Computed example of a mutant assay.
Amino acid sequence: MINLDAADPAGLAAFYSQVLGWEVLHSTAEYAMIGDGSISLGFGLLPGYSAPGWPQEAAPKRFHLDFYVDDLEKAEAQALALGASKPAEQPSPDRWRVLLDPAGHPFDICLRS
Rank of each mutant, 00 (worst) to 15 (best):
A32L: 12
Y31Q: 09
G83M: 06
A103R: 07
P52W: 01
Y16W: 15
S27W: 00
A13M: 11
A58M: 07
L65T: 04
C110I: 14
A79D: 06
A79W: 08
S38I: 02
D66M: 01
D71K: 11
S17F: 04
L72Q: 08
L4H: 12
A13R: 01
S17D: 11
E89F: 15
Y68G: 01
L25R: 14
D8A: 11
E23Q: 15
I2L: 15
F107P: 07
D8H: 13
I34T: 11
L25Y: 02
I2A: 12
A29S: 12
A29M: 03
G104V: 10
P106D: 08
F43T: 04
T28A: 13
G42W: 02
L41F: 15
P93Y: 03
A10I: 03
K86T: 05
G53A: 10
A103M: 14
L41S: 03
S85L: 11
V98N: 05
G53R: 13
K74V: 12
S38M: 07
A58C: 00
P55A: 11
H64G: 04
P60S: 12
G44A: 13
F107Y: 05
A14L: 01
L41A: 02
P106G: 07
E73F: 05
A10P: 04
A6P: 09
L45F: 05
G48A: 11
L99G: 06
P52Y: 02
G44S: 10
G44H: 08
A14K: 00
C110A: 06
S113R: 01
W96G: 00
D70F: 02
W54R: 08
Q90W: 09
D5Q: 13
S40F: 09
L41H: 02
M33F: 01
A88C: 06
D36M: 07
F63N: 05
A6R: 06
L46V: 14
V19W: 04
A84M: 09
M33H: 03
T28V: 07
F43S: 06
D8Y: 02
A75K: 03
H64Y: 14
H105K: 06
L41Y: 10
K74L: 14
L45G: 02
A75T: 07
L72G: 07
R95D: 10
E73Y: 05
E30V: 09
R112I: 00
I39K: 11
A59P: 03
G104E: 11
L99W: 05
L45T: 00
D70E: 14
L111T: 00
P55D: 04
Q90P: 09
P60A: 13
L72R: 13
A84N: 10
L111M: 04
A81H: 03
A29Y: 00
L20D: 03
L82A: 07
